[in-house]
Design a protein around this nucleic acid. Structure first.
Length: 456
RNA sequence: GCCCUGGUAGUGUAGCGGCCUAUCAUGCGGGCCUGUCGAGCCCGCGACCCGGGUUCAAAUCCCGGCCAGGGCGCCA
């Protein structure tokens, strides 16, 4: 772990202003920037006491910051008995600033060490720690989440969030390159967006309101407003009772909506955005990927497209029966995922198992212009060309058991010039999970909200 | 929400009716040690999820609760 943290500051933009140039900056360098070429120079580094190895007359203190770990070498004869005692008895995870001289060293693993002139203790950690950072024993996810502020100090945990950052940056860049405007729609809403999922009720002064499960209706309204191409990165809330390693009750949804195109146009944007995100991770996060021991697969464009009916065939050939019109079961998706162990689209879904806002095909209205983006047997996105024909939309809502009266604010937008449009939504934690090779979605979010967890 | 499995020091675990004054590791406290890099050695500290029950006797068996892990359903 320590060895993985050598080298330059990871993944900083070339336009970045050095964080140490600020006049009030306490440090002159991140630990990762201390290298043998600084031999003889005086530097100041700040961070956490990762570990101390006291050999009696000499001690080695490993100082950790966001970028890595550097060795502080304490020689009793040089710094004096008292200072030696004071520093070597600091509890792990205390926060200190060390000013000292850089020394090239064959014996130090990083090829360099710092001989301190002064050590300032900024915050002494209590003992024992609720969770070890440098410990050799593991900890269960639940214990880690209860003590997330310490858990996040672990380089391999931080790595997940730097990967997530780069992934989102790559996706956002691709969308901006293609002319999408970033928007923010309300998260406190009056009615259910799509029906089906449960919403969290909130008190909105003297009225009942809900937390938004999806920006779906609002981003469609923006198509009527002529925004043409929009995207939103925002939380979505689902009051589902599910409690699994793939579900959260609050997650970040990347939503896209675009006018004057069909579902194939939306799929094109999605596959380019996803490839851009993975490319960015590969460019900027080599070190973090190494820390986690994963190598994300960079898919080729365009992704494979197969229809729902083809999936049903593949499943039944493998002995998994699917009733036409039903959503594909976990078992059926497993059968299909075995055939295509990478990213691919499932297209041409039955209207029965898709939401009301999907546009049916003109030639066969039993099918809708919907698609799912899959990774093996895991669903990561769904999207569609939307139904922009108001009469047909009302009709479909009734068929789905929804009352159009509750959606007047939405339906009105279709009556005065609504262009054809399409879009999709992707769960940021879900793709982070795939790219970073995580087993539990909770690891892809800082402070997860699930069926049982509301704190921290 | 359903099915299965489990909850033992700060952390991760062993024990599964009396050999438990509860194992081991890590951690923490103290001591020794001038080149560690999973440092080493010596001494010490620290735990049976909660509530009922069965039994001469419960960490161990039974019931309820809470929490967790694995599967399924639903979904992004």
């Amino acid at each position: 772990m320590v060895g993985d943290m050598r080298g330059e500051i990871s993944g900083l933009s070339p336009r970045l202003i050095s964080p140490h140039r600020h006049p009030r900056a306490m440090r002159t360098h991140y630990t990762a920037e201390i290298n043998p070429s600084l031999d003889g120079e005086t530097v100041r580094v700040c961070g956490w006491v990762h570990d101390i190895r006291n050999l009696g007359g000499i001690a080695f203190l490993l100082l950790r910051d966001r970028e890595g770990i550097v060795q502080i070498t304490l020689i009793k004869k040089e710094i004096g008995k008292e200072m030696f005692k004071e520093i070597t008895s600091l509890p792990r995870e205390s926060v200190i600033c060390v000013e000292g001289r850089v020394q090239r060293s064959e014996q130090a693993r990083m090829g360099v060490e710092i001989l301190p002139a002064s050590v300032k203790v900024l915050n002494r950690a209590k003992t024992p720690l609720p969770l070890g950072v440098a410990d050799r024993v593991g900890a269960e996810l639940d214990t880690r989440l209860d003590n997330r502020f310490i858990d996040l100090r672990k380089p391999e945990v931080l790595a997940v969030f730097r990967i997530r950052h780069s992934l989102l940056a790559g996706i956002r860049d691709a969308l901006m390159r293609e002319g999408f405007i970033e928007v923010h729609t309300p998260k406190i809403i009056a009615t259910a967006t799509e029906g089906g999922t449960n919403l969290f009720p909130v008190r909105y002064f003297e009225r009942d309101a809900y937390l938004s499960q999806s920006p779906q209706l609002y981003k469609q309204i923006l198509m009527a407003a002529g925004f043409d191409r929009v995207f939103e990165v925002a939380p979505a809330f689902r009051a589902e009772e599910h409690d699994t390693s793939r579900h959260l009750n609050e997650f970040i949804s990347i939503d896209v909506e675009m006018s004057f195109t069909d579902e194939e146009g939306a799929m094109g944007v999605l596959e380019r955005a996803l490839v851009s995100g993975i490319e960015r991770v590969l460019e900027e996060r080599e070190r973090e990927l190494e820390t986690l021991g994963v190598q994300p697969h960079l898919p080729e464009l365009p992704f494979t497209r197969i229809t729902y009916d083809e999936c049903v065939d593949i499943a039944s050939r493998k002995g998994v029966e699917v009733e036409w019109g039903e959503d594909l079961s976990a078992e059926a998706l497993k059968a299909v995922g075995e055939e295509i162990p990478t990213y691919y689209f499932i297209t041409r879904w039955p209207m029965e198992c898709k939401p009301f806002y999907v546009l049916p095909f003109e030639d066969d209205p039993r099918y809708g212009r919907a698609f799912d983006l899959m990774f093996g047997d895991r669903e990561i996105t769904s999207g569609a060309q939307r139904n922009h024909i108001p009469d047909l939309l009302r009709e479909t809502m009734v068929k789905k058991g929804l009352n159009p009266k509750n959606f007047e604010f939405y339906l009105r937008a279709f009556e005065y010039g609504m262009p054809p449009h399409a879009g999709w939504a992707i769960g940021l934690e879900r793709i982070t999970m795939i790219v970073a090779g995580l087993k539990n979605i909770r690891e892809a979010t800082l402070f997860p909200r699930d069926r049982n967890r509301l704190v921290p």
